[in-house]
Structure formats: structure tokens, C-alpha cells
Amino acid sequence: ETKSLTLVLHRDSGSLGFNIIGGRPSVDNHDGSSSEGIFVSKIVDSGPAAKEGGLQIHDRIIEVNGRDLSRATHDQAVEAFKTAKEPIVVQVLRR
């Protein structure tokens, strides 16, 4: 079962304390579909994302501050987090 969660993150020394993997390839599949998503791959101990109620590894990131990342490329997702103003509201899907 997958549930949708909304989390609020604040940077600590400029970092949110997690890494992402995935992202849509720069070239779409011929039918326009994509199974890619942006997923949390690593969480830094005691970083902002590790706090209670924070992110978990394998969370799929859907949205950052209202910006849809469900079909974003990896670079677009990285840029969305880099430029996001605080508080950073992150919507994820968690299995």
C-alpha cells in the first residue's frame, strides 16, 4: 500500500541531508510514458531529512514547494531542491 505524505524540511548549513536517485531520462519513451521517479537513496544521520517525521529511503518525491517532480529529470529535481525557499514542503509517496 502506498500513502502520500507531506513533509516540511529546513536546511542545516545549506544542506537538506539526503541524496536522490532516478529521474526521467532526458529522452522520453516513444509513447510518452515513463516509469522513472525521483527516490530518496541516502539520508545523512542527524541531518534535516533524518529528523522525526522526515524522509525515508525509497520515498518517491512527487512535489517540492508545489513544483511537480513526478516526471522530472534528475537534474530538474536537483535544481528544484537547490532553489527551493524555506520552509521546503515535500510531498512523497511511501510504500
Score class of each variant (00 low, 15 high):
Ser4Leu: 14
Thr2Ala: 06
Gly47Val: 07
Lys42Val: 04
Ala50Thr: 08
Val92Asn: 03
Leu16Ser: 14
Leu9Trp: 05
His74Leu: 15
Gly23Pro: 15
Val8Lys: 15
Ala72Glu: 03
Gly32Ala: 10
Asp31Tyr: 09
Leu93Val: 14
Ile20Ser: 01
Ser13Ile: 06
Ile21Glu: 11
His10Tyr: 14
Val8Glu: 15
Ser26Ala: 12
Glu1Met: 14
Gly53Ala: 08
Ser70Gly: 05
Val92Ile: 09
His30Arg: 11
Leu69Ala: 01
Ala72Trp: 01
Ile43His: 02
Val8Arg: 15
Ser4Val: 05
Glu86His: 05
Ile43Trp: 03
Gly23Met: 09
Ser46Val: 07
Phe81Ser: 15
Asp31Glu: 13
Asn19Lys: 11
Asp28Cys: 10
Val27Gly: 12
Asp59Lys: 00
Gly37Ser: 02
Leu93His: 13
Val90Asp: 07
Leu9Phe: 09
Gly32Cys: 08
Gly54Ser: 11
Asp12Asn: 10
Asp12Gln: 14
Asn19Gly: 07
Leu55Asn: 00
Leu7Cys: 14
Gly14Tyr: 05
Asp12Phe: 11
Glu36Asn: 11
Ile20Gly: 02
Ser26Asp: 11
Phe39Ile: 06
Leu7Met: 12
Glu1Gln: 05
Leu5Thr: 04
Ile38Lys: 01
Gly66Cys: 02
Ser34Thr: 14
Val89Arg: 12
Gly54Asn: 08
Val89Glu: 08
Pro87Tyr: 01
Thr83Ser: 07
Ile88Phe: 04
Thr73Lys: 05
Val27Met: 14
Asp68Met: 03
Gly66Tyr: 02
Ser34Ile: 10
Ala49Glu: 08
Ser35Asp: 08
Asp31Gln: 10
Glu63Leu: 06
Pro87Val: 02
Ile88His: 01
Asp75Asn: 13
Gly47Phe: 06
Glu36Thr: 12
Val27Phe: 11
Lys3Trp: 05
Ser26Gln: 10
Ile43Gly: 01
Arg11Glu: 03
Glu36Ser: 12
Gly54Val: 07
Phe39Lys: 04
Ser41Leu: 02
Ser41Asp: 15
Ser41Ile: 03
Asp75Pro: 08
Asn65Val: 01
Leu9Arg: 05
Asp45Thr: 10
Gly37Thr: 00
Ile57Cys: 07
Arg71His: 14
Gly37Lys: 00
Val8Trp: 08
Gly54Arg: 10
Arg95Val: 06
Ile38Gly: 00
Val8Pro: 04
Ser35Tyr: 14
Arg11Tyr: 04
Ser41Glu: 07
Gly32His: 14
Ile38Pro: 01
Pro87Gln: 02
Pro25Arg: 10
Phe39Cys: 04
Ser70Met: 09
Arg67Ala: 12
Ser34Glu: 15
Ala72Val: 08
Asn19Cys: 07
Asp68Ile: 03
Ile61Gln: 00
Ser33Phe: 09
Thr2Gln: 10
Gly22Trp: 09
Ile43Thr: 04
Gly22Asn: 12
Lys85Asp: 13
Asp45Trp: 05
Asp28Ala: 09
Glu36His: 10
Lys51Pro: 06
Thr73Ile: 01
Val64Ala: 08
Val27Asp: 13
Phe18Tyr: 00
Ile38Leu: 05
Glu52Arg: 10
Arg71Met: 10
Thr2Asn: 15
Leu7Gly: 01
Ala72Leu: 04
Ser13Phe: 08
Gly53Ile: 07
Asp68Lys: 03
Ala84Phe: 01
Phe18Cys: 02
Ser4Pro: 08
Ser33Cys: 15
Asp75Arg: 12
Thr2Leu: 10
Glu1Arg: 06
Arg71Ser: 13
Ser70His: 09
